[in-house]
Computed example of a mutant assay.
Amino acid sequence: MRQALWLLQLGTPSLPTPSSVSKYLKEFLMDPRVIDIPWIARWLLVHGIIANARSGKSAKAYQKIWLPKGSPLRVYSEKFRDELQSILSSQEIKVFLGMRYGSPSMRESLDQIRSDGFDRILVVPMFPQYASSSWGSAMERVYKLLAREINAPSLRVIPAFFDQPEFINAWANRIRAAEYQNYDLVLFSYHGLPERHMKRCADSCLQSNGCCDKLNIDNQFCYRAQCFETTRRIQQILHLDDSKLATSFQSRLGRTPWIKPYTDELVLTLLNQGKKRILVCSSSFVVDCLETLEEVEIRLRENFITAGGEKLEMVKSLNADLDWVEGFSKIVERHKFLK
């Protein structure tokens, strides 16, 4: 049975230039699931302030990490698609890649899926943990695009895979390879979100200090709780003592409260506690991108060393490494259409 596997990624500017970055930021930040304020206020904020203020600075950041073939996120995502295709070809599955923002767009990739004659589509947002602003936004776009189809295809969706053994083992393998025993602490740094996004997921979110300590039916859609669950599962595989790890959140934007603790502040607190050698694992990403390569590997490291730290290293993401590609193919196998 022929079926399409539709991989959905966040997206990236096409070039590391202020104009390209500005175009990307406008598309990204005008998404009401990303900045959840009334349209006119969002338009004025994004077009009048953020895009103009950040495009130049962000373009310089992209220039530091840009690869000969383009943006790391796109290069690694395309390589992952191609490597996965080589494994899944025997199962009559063709793999497609679409970007929520930027190119290749989800519209373009869906058009290719349909022109190739597929009427069964297996969709997977490539965000390990569920967040309305990433996973939810991608799926909302899927449903809107398919709603325009006269002959709507059959659809199956692979859920967030933050707790799947293939994902957990892939990260554990990388942390082992980085020789985590030689560090004072392993820091699991996840992408941050505004606190108000968490509170909209469940009434219990952020109502107590320990509300994310255990994943349960009340917080099952809480991004922060899923991040802590990912940390716990990797910890179990590596037999890491609680004193040898921490979890934090990066990439905050604006003045509104974001989920805590903040990565940039926590590393300095840890340094004051004598943690001079830190290994950082950004396990809310499956490919290296601006947030890992520039924010963590360059900027966070520089700030830590400047403050007196001895060493801060980042574990490279899963990218298109063979063990992750093979592991992900097993996730696909569990969710694909059956004959």
Rank of each mutant, 00 (worst) to 15 (best):
F285N: 01
L110V: 01
R252N: 12
V142D: 01
S251F: 05
T12D: 05
R224L: 08
T269E: 15
Q236A: 15
P13M: 10
W43D: 04
T256C: 07
E326H: 08
S154C: 10
K311I: 09
F304R: 01
S19Q: 15
I298Q: 12
R114T: 12
H191M: 08
A172V: 11
P72R: 06
M106C: 00
L29E: 11
M314G: 07
Q273C: 07
W324P: 02
N319L: 08
F118T: 02
V46Q: 02
G192H: 03
I150L: 13
I237R: 04
E333P: 00
C201W: 04
L215P: 03
R255W: 11
D242F: 10
R42L: 04
E297M: 10
Q164D: 13
K260E: 13
W6N: 02
L215R: 02
C289V: 09
E313Y: 05
N173K: 14
P13D: 10
R100G: 01
L15W: 11
F337K: 05
D218W: 11
I305L: 15
A178V: 05
V157T: 13
M1D: 09
S22K: 10
N303H: 14
E108A: 12
Y76F: 15
A4R: 01
S329F: 03
G56K: 13
Y180K: 02
D264R: 10
E83T: 09
R232I: 08
S243F: 07
L110Q: 00
G210S: 14
C222L: 10
S137Q: 03
D36F: 11
M314D: 00
T256D: 13
F167G: 00
Q235C: 11
C205R: 00
A61R: 09
I259K: 01
N303P: 05
V186G: 00
Y62I: 04
G136Y: 06
E265I: 05
L73N: 00
S115W: 06
A4L: 06
R277A: 09
Q9H: 14
G210N: 15
T292A: 10
M314P: 01
I305M: 13
R224Y: 06
E140S: 12
P16V: 04
D264A: 11
L240T: 06
Y180M: 10
L206W: 04
K79T: 13
Q164R: 15
I237P: 01
W171K: 03
K60E: 14
K64I: 06
S103Y: 07
R100S: 01
Q181P: 00
Q250E: 09
R232W: 07
V21K: 03
L45K: 06
L15R: 14
R100T: 01
Q91M: 10
N151P: 00
R232Y: 10
G136V: 09
A131Y: 02
S14F: 07
P16D: 10
V286I: 15
N182Q: 14
G210P: 06
A41W: 13
P194F: 08
E108K: 04
V280R: 02
L322E: 14
L7W: 00
I49T: 10
M1E: 08
P32I: 11
Y130C: 04
M314H: 10
I305C: 09
Q129P: 08
Y183A: 02
K260G: 12
N303A: 15
A177S: 15
F328L: 06
M198E: 14
E166N: 09
N151K: 15
R141W: 02
